[in-house]
């Protein structure tokens, strides 16, 4: 499996990462060799094998009551979290226009 520069550009756009021309070129060859390596899996017979669904061998569902955390009403915590944002305006996170 080999990836060309156009494909890398397309995937990087999906991943929301701006790559330089040099990075695109490097990634095209490096990712192609990694994909060649992982392609060996296609030869492993898996008929009637179910996909694993996590890091544990026997999964069980985890349920809890849909309770509201006290944190929701913690004004200081909210202020603290918003203060972490690179740009804020009047207690709100500020972003660029979408369209």
């Amino acid at each position: 499996m080999s990836l060309d520069i156009q494909q890398i550009e397309h995937i990087a756009n999906l991943a929301r990462i701006e790559l330089t021309a040099l990075e695109q070129e490097k990634f095209a060859s490096q990712l192609s060799s990694i994909l060649d390596y992982v392609d060996k899996l296609k030869k492993t017979p898996v008929t009637s094998v179910l996909p694993a669904d996590g890091g544990t061998f026997e999964l069980t569902n985890v349920f809890r009551a849909d309770a509201t955390s006290e944190d929701v009403f913690d004004v200081d915590l909210a202020k603290q979290l918003i203060a972490l944002a690179p740009e804020t305006d009047n207690g709100q996170v500020k972003v660029e226009k979408i369209f």
């Binding site: 756009n13 991943a15 990462i17 990712l31 369209f99």
Partner: peptide, 27 residues
């Protein structure tokens, strides 16, 4: 636009290996 902020921020502040794995995983 917002998408440019995402792309520039991630392109500028992530290192090579992180970008490589994100692009590979996205593919």
């Amino acid at each position: 636009k917002l998408i440019d902020v995402y792309k520039k921020t991630r392109g500028q502040y992530f290192g090579a290996e992180v970008k490589r794995r994100i692009v590979l995983g996205t593919y």
